[in-house]
Nucleic acid binder design. Structure first.
Lengths: 110, 110
DNA sequence: CAATAATATATCGCTATGCCACATATCGGT
DNA sequence: ACCGATATGTGGCATAGCGATATATTATTG
């Protein structure tokens, strides 16, 4: 119903936003989304990790393994230059999308 | 990533909202969504019609054939009592969803 | 110290969804 | 006669979501 990019947009938008300021690893991203949304949003690992691989393959994020004594290895993802552009575009798409739904359903947002 | 209801929510929400005030037929719903969203949202018929059948099967909308001379038969859908409840719930879910995304991505809405 | 929870990444396989492409039918305009 | 708009409908493919399951390490708690 919306163009392909927009539809996948909300999931991708969340991840790209979270790695914007600092590199984060998958598990961190998953728990952050759940906590910050107060439980409204939840990522299943079987969706989250494959999505991270897709984003990396597209060159929007770049991962690297970090191993520290006393903790399991983690793969930290940072936003690439290309990813920054995509994030900006997706933010606009999201705004447009929400406005469109508002116009049709009559829902107002705080 | 969101619960099943929420995810299908946006598509269902649009349809339920549009048949809230008056019965509408499928083609009308499709063109209305496209026009009111100024092209941002578009329903493919191969998604729209099956979705209408699903909503009717669940008892949220009720369709009836209307045949008038000088036009092709149309199936008009009206919102059922059950559908009204679902619509109210989905409006709340949608608001929650948008707020959650806003909190995580830092996007403000007009 | 043994069991359990939390952390962290990973994948199989089922189901549902989206949509391209195509099909059918009627009406109005050119 | 042809084409575009209106109107409904479907087969089949590609993809996404996710429950279930697996593996490995560290922290906690009885």
């Amino acid at each position: 119903m919306l163009d392909r990019e927009l539809k996948k947009g909300s999931a991708e938008l969340l991840i790209l936003s979270l790695v914007e300021d600092q590199p984060r690893h998958g598990y961190d991203i998953g728990t952050l989304i759940e906590r910050r949304s107060k439980g409204t949003l939840r990522f299943n690992v079987a969706s989250l990790y494959p999505l991270l691989y897709r984003l990396e393959k597209r060159g929007w994020i770049q991962g690297r393994w970090v191993e520290k004594a006393g903790q399991r290895r983690r793969r930290y993802y940072r936003l690439t230059a290309e990813g920054k552009k995509v994030l900006a575009a997706q933010r606009n798409s999201w705004r447009e999308f929400v406005e469109a739904i508002s116009r049709i359903t009559g829902i107002e947002h705080a």
